[in-house]
Write a protein that binds this DNA or RNA. Structure first.
Lengths: 245, 245
DNA sequence: CGTATAAAACGAACAGCGTTCGTCGATCAT
DNA sequence: ATGATCGACGAACGCTGTTCGTTTTATACG
């Protein structure tokens, strides 16, 4: 909902700040900074309050509870996603690029995807991105019902993949090691585990360990995204591309 | 020195109360029962211990920590999934049926999918299911690397969808209402919210609310699964179905 | 049969969590 | 100047996962 900002000519008194000046935006920004720096697990109301040099109770004047704070932070992250003007000729590429962009944004703010997975987007930026996807697909001639479903599935896919990725980051954070070292060590252990499995019960797993292990996160994500988009095209072809609503 | 009589508050021997016999399996079974009955959020080490008429510390003799307990419960749930003997002619249907079966199992034990999403499967049943998928796809002529990726993506998809579904169950549980009533009320609120959005900023969302809202969980899941499988077939056709490893 | 030893069970406690309550102090309209 | 309103905040509640040190039990052995 578009809300009218306070007219700047209204008395800006404020100046004298005897108490610390809290605000919703400041709390959200601080929360996001903490998540980026220390991870979602480290984000507690107490921690945010501490970073703002106050007590936890003070936050509740601006934010209903932790869940609302997380949703606000999530929407703040979504603001980084840019949606293009729909081009009917390039709708498929546009969707692919949009989703890849979202993937990269979630990667950058690793842990925040855990929040998105648990939330129906109602913030301005979440709505903006959904509207953008829908506009692109409708412009490209995707049947409305399929487009609506697709938004849902793509959103789930992006968030869930980023979520999975964030778990490794969490573990790495807990281990204290550097990321590259942690990753190779971790996957080395997994590979060793798989290699030690009884061949009679898991012949294919053991035989294909290298195939199971060698793709990195981005490759896996793009593979799945490619499947979903190929599938959509195939689905449209079959159902008829010019279905009326 | 006068003999001090035994202080009456000193231990009274406790009578002969045969200690409860704990075991890993019993703890896991109890944990699963509690999750089904009260939800994952209600599962604490204290709650499990209480159900077994003991203290939380007693559990740690059989289970390393809460995470390990959850993984054991998760694998226990996976034991309900049956994998068929690979039939090269029917590989695609077999995969589809297997994934749908997993979907239904996760639905039945609502909250457990949250654990699966956070875990690389290393339990016997997780491995069994993965081996089964791989066997079916390899028998069907899917290139090994694609099959390996597919296992990963399908697992992520099933868990993430079930996870999302479990969130509604959690909220319903918290609200105290009956499931059907809660669902229709909840989605009614969402629809109302979307309908109230400013049309100038979100024209397509507002115009397509019914398309966005009307599919139920199972339809959405099958839609996405269909996309992934269509995409796989398309991918194989393009890359060549008989690629050597 | 009595006793030593290892394993399991356990009570209590620690540090941390989200959230609420009641109070205090500052700002603003009158 | 004064009363009302609202943000800031200290303290507390009930909960969490986990650990420590101790007690109790079952088993092995002389």
């Amino acid at each position: 909902m578009t809300q009218i900002p306070a007219p700047p000519w209204r008395k800006t008194r404020k100046a004298s700040a005897p108490r610390t000046v809290l605000s919703r935006d400041l709390i959200v920004a601080t929360g996001l900074r903490l998540i980026d720096a220390e991870g979602l697990d480290a984000l507690s109301m107490r921690r945010v309050a501490q970073a703002l040099d106050t007590g936890p109770a003070s936050l509740y004047a601006h934010v209903a509870n932790k869940e609302e704070l997380l949703e606000l932070i999530y929407d703040e992250v979504m603001s980084e996603i840019r949606v293009p003007e729909p081009d009917p000729e390039r709708w498929l590429e546009q969707i692919r690029e949009l989703i890849m962009q979202a993937f990269l944004v979630f990667r950058a703010h690793a842990d925040i995807a855990r929040v998105g997975l648990a939330t129906i987007p109602t913030g301005p930026n979440g709505l903006r991105v959904a509207e953008g996807q829908l506009a692109i697909m409708l412009a490209g001639g995707v049947p409305p019902k399929s487009a609506a479903m697709m938004i849902d599935r793509l959103g789930l896919y992006v968030c869930s993949d980023a979520y999975e990725g964030s778990l490794y980051v969490s573990r790495q954070r807990g281990s204290g090691k550097e990321l590259g070292e942690f990753m190779s060590e971790f996957f080395g252990q997994i590979a060793t585990f798989y290699r030690g499995l009884p061949v009679d019960r898991f012949p294919n797993l053991v035989a294909r360990i290298d195939d199971l292990m060698d793709a990195n996160g981005t490759e896996r994500f793009e593979f799945g995204l490619d499947l979903l988009l190929r599938g959509l095209v195939s689905h449209i072809r079959e159902a008829g591309p010019t279905t009326k609503d």
